[in-house]
Amino acid sequence: MLWYHIVFLSVIQGLTEFLPISSSAHLILPAQLLHWPDQGLAFDVAVHVGTLIAIVGYFRKDIIQIIVAWFASLVSRQSTSDSRLGWWICLATLPAGVAGVLFDDFISEHLRSLEVIAYATIGFGVLLWLSDRFGASDKSEAEFGIKSVLFIGFAQALALIPGTSRSGITMTAARTLGFTRESAAKFSFLLSIPLILAAGGLKSVELVASNLVVDWVGIFMGVVLSAISAYLCIYLFLKWLNKIGFFPFFVYRLILGSILLCIVYI
């Protein structure tokens, strides 16, 4: 990979991992549209580490409180809002984890096309806007329950389809259930941690087993740039979300999906 490939893909990964516009689609597109070389397994591990550093760094106080309360609930059997949030994150992660194990090979072979990405980008973008435009906004994080968490968890499993957006579909599900934008976004971000850990861990195991020659300078650049861009993205997104809503992301997805359909059919 050339240096500007590394810079572009690292920043794109950092920005799109947490914005509701699909990171997988944006990482697939440069290779298909610009004929860039595939970024490779080592680089995938690097940008996963970078985004994990960003999300853990931003929510470090919340994460520590949740972990401490979760372990305390195992010992004392007493439930608090933080311990329940820890259990909800575990529960909501299960559907995507099971779906990933069962369908990852099928998705990799059959759904990583421009056409699928285009339709998913538009379709799930419409759902995001509808849920934000017509959904209620009266529920906080304290009102998560088993049914709502499972609904969000099963929605998250759909993010295995390239173009869906993991953050986008989980926020869509939460907004559909009436949670505020801030609550939907925060839960979506915290929910990303187990999946990023799992994905990064699996790719790391594959990398070690592959005996590939690693460009450590490129890896370091990928980690640093994706971490910085992801941290800034989280900060700005949460700061502006209540002012701008999800409509700009719907418009972006509509434009991007339309361009991709033109490329496919024209």
Rank of each mutant, 00 (worst) to 15 (best):
L9T: 13
S10W: 04
L15W: 02
H26P: 08
I28V: 15
L29C: 11
P30R: 04
A31L: 10
D38R: 08
L41D: 04
F43N: 06
D44G: 13
V45E: 08
A46D: 10
V47I: 15
V49Q: 04
T51W: 00
V56M: 12
V56I: 14
I63H: 01
Q65D: 15
A69Y: 01
L74T: 07
V75E: 04
V75C: 09
S76D: 12
S76K: 13
S81Y: 03
W87Y: 04
A99P: 02
D104P: 05
V116F: 03
G123I: 14
G123R: 06
S131L: 08
R133W: 08
L150I: 03
A155H: 00
L158P: 07
I161R: 02
P162H: 00
G163Q: 04
G163N: 06
T164S: 10
I169E: 03
M171W: 00
S183A: 15
A185H: 06
A185L: 09
F189I: 00
L191H: 02
P194I: 03
L195D: 02
L195R: 10
I196T: 10
A198Y: 00
A199T: 07
G201S: 13
G201A: 12
L202S: 05
V205F: 12
N211V: 04
L212I: 11
L212W: 02
V214T: 10
D215C: 11
V217P: 05
I219D: 06
M221T: 10
V223F: 07
A227F: 12
A230F: 02
A230H: 07
Y231M: 12
Y231I: 10
C233P: 14
K243E: 11
P248W: 04
F250I: 04
V251R: 06
S258Q: 10
I259F: 14
L260E: 09
I263G: 05
V264Q: 08
